[in-house]
């Protein structure tokens, strides 16, 4: 599967993910892509190694007396086991399955046959699934900031290139694009943004709060 992936997670975004400083909606895309792409999993582990080198190089701070004993004494304490990350279900990688709480997506109509399912919406941005019928465009829109879009089914093209299952498109402020779903199979994407999407046609701007776009 990862052989066909040709659009990957850029280094700066991977480093921020590893350091835990990537807004949650983007972290969902990175985790989903890494679940499918060994090249980016290797890159993630390389950034962890860099983090480990930073940790090794830190100046030591003296621990207060008794702390070591406290930790050693707690080793046998019973604890709640944390749930493991979910595994893949159909076209949805584990992190998306987790975001959907293991249930199938609840689609809402956006117009033009396009549907969406919001996965995460907060002050860090939003993550959603987009469903675009084969051969149809995503409504024209611009981005207030960063947008990461990962293909889960089908594929799409825009002025920057063609994107297949597993590929991630990285779009920034200045890009105003009209992604067009491939003919054949309907396209399902995972899309994350850090600012509200602004659709220029299709959905009147006044309706945006209602659709939570």
């Amino acid at each position: 599967m990862s052989e066909q992936i040709s659009h990957h997670i850029p280094d700066a975004i991977m480093a921020a993910y590893v350091a835990g400083n990537l807004p949650r909606p983007f972290a969902l895309v990175v985790a989903s892509h890494v679940s499918m792409c060994d090249e980016c999993r290797a890159n993630l582990l390389a950034h962890q190694a860099a983090g480990g080198a930073v940790l090794e190089g830190m100046a030591e701070e003296k621990l207060s007396g008794g702390m070591r004993d406290r930790v050693m004494g707690a080793l046998d304490d019973a604890i709640d086991v944390e749930p493991e990350p979910a595994s893949r279900q159909g076209i949805y990688p584990g992190p998306v399955v987790d975001a959907l709480s293991g249930k199938p997506p609840k689609w809402k109509k956006l117009g033009g046959g396009v549907r969406q399912c919001i996965l995460d919406m907060g002050n860090e941005g939003s993550a959603r699934l987009l469903y675009i019928p084969a051969g149809r465009p995503v409504p024209e829109h611009s981005h207030g900031g960063l947008e990461l879009t990962m293909v889960l089914q089908g594929g799409f093209s825009d002025s920057t290139g063609h994107f297949d299952v597993g590929d991630v498109e990285v779009a920034t402020d200045d890009l105003e694009h009209v992604p067009m779903a491939d003919e054949g199979e309907d396209c399902i994407c995972l899309a994350a943004t850090d600012a509200p999407l602004r659709f220029s046609a299709f959905v009147p701007r006044i309706l945006q709060p209602f659709f939570a776009i």
């Binding site: 590893v18 350091a19 835990g20 949650r24 972290a27 969902l28 990175v30 985790a31 989903s32 890494v34 679940s35 999993r41 993630l44 582990l45 962890q48 190694a49 983090g51 480990g52 080198a53 930073v54 940790l55 090794e56 990350p85 979910a86 595994s87 893949r88 990688p93 584990g94 992190p95 987790d98 975001a99």
Partner: peptide, 25 residues
């Protein structure tokens, strides 16, 4: 060291934000 680094970042963030971050399969 790499592995402990990641455990440390994840725990520190979980404690601050009180919510888990998305993790790969």
């Amino acid at each position: 060291s790499s592995w402990i680094y990641q455990v440390a970042r994840n725990r520190q963030i979980d404690i601050i934000r009180k919510e888990g971050r998305p993790m790969p399969e």
